[in-house]
Design a protein around this nucleic acid. Sequence first.
DNA 1: GGACTCTTCTACGATACGTAGAAAATCAAT
DNA 2: ATTGATTTTCTACGTATCGTAGAAGAGTCC
Lengths: 126, 126
Amino acid sequence: MATLGELERAVMDLLWEHPEAITANTLRDLLSQRPPAVAGGTDSRELAVTTVLTVLSRLEKKGLVERERSIRPHRYRSVTSRAEHTAELMLEVLGSAPDREAVLARFIGTVSDGEATTLRKLLGQG
Amino acid sequence: MATLGELERAVMDLLWEHPEAITANTLRDLLSQRPPAVAGGTDSRELAVTTVLTVLSRLEKKGLVERERSIRPHRYRSVTSRAEHTAELMLEVLGSAPDREAVLARFIGTVSDGEATTLRKLLGQG
DNA sequence: GGACTCTTCTACGATACGTAGAAAATCAAT
DNA sequence: ATTGATTTTCTACGTATCGTAGAAGAGTCC
């Protein structure tokens, strides 16, 4: 599955925040309004639409984005929710470990109390 | 932190399996004996020692590997255990999510029964 | 059908990684 | 200390990915 680049990530974030499918142009506008990723960075995103389209195509190829080709300004939407995607990534990382339980132990030791409570609830009914 | 390449990964795996610090030459030998990553791949690792050294330097720069420069054939060892490393990666992935609990919910839904039991135990005393 | 809009193709620079030779540094033995 | 062997560093090249976008092609609308 691999990891996303910075712009790819920014695009996915916007798509995740927008349940409705949107056009590349809308996306480009949203990217312009984005605050710089790093505070202080003069990161005024003034991207060409083709740039956004290229990124969207790549994300489509990676299976993260889907588009409606039937209507003319194509509409793009994320295939999965951010939560799903993140969970999948975590599982992918965990999957490659021969010592899963040891990993989980360390992992659990780090989540906040509130999250631990949530986890207990989720695990409750087995 | 970023993700590791294939060879970098193979090297880390070996270092994780070898608690004692080892030399680049030993590592190269161990790599030769490795079965191909992909079954069928004629992946007989016959690497030059310089290749291994380059990779080790890169891993050192990334903070994953440590070396003893005092003795002459330098000895290399991993800085953290594989479990720690994997847990850190998982946390890194999770950390970038604004909806951590939703992610955890999906994540939990996927671990095996045995692991769920382990998790319950780990979370037991709050 | 011409003007405009949108998408695809092609491309270039930067970075990461696999790979290793050439050169420099160190060590061992005389 | 000189030489020969061992080890490490420097430099480099090929490939892949990503940010970036112009040029060219396809579709849309009077």
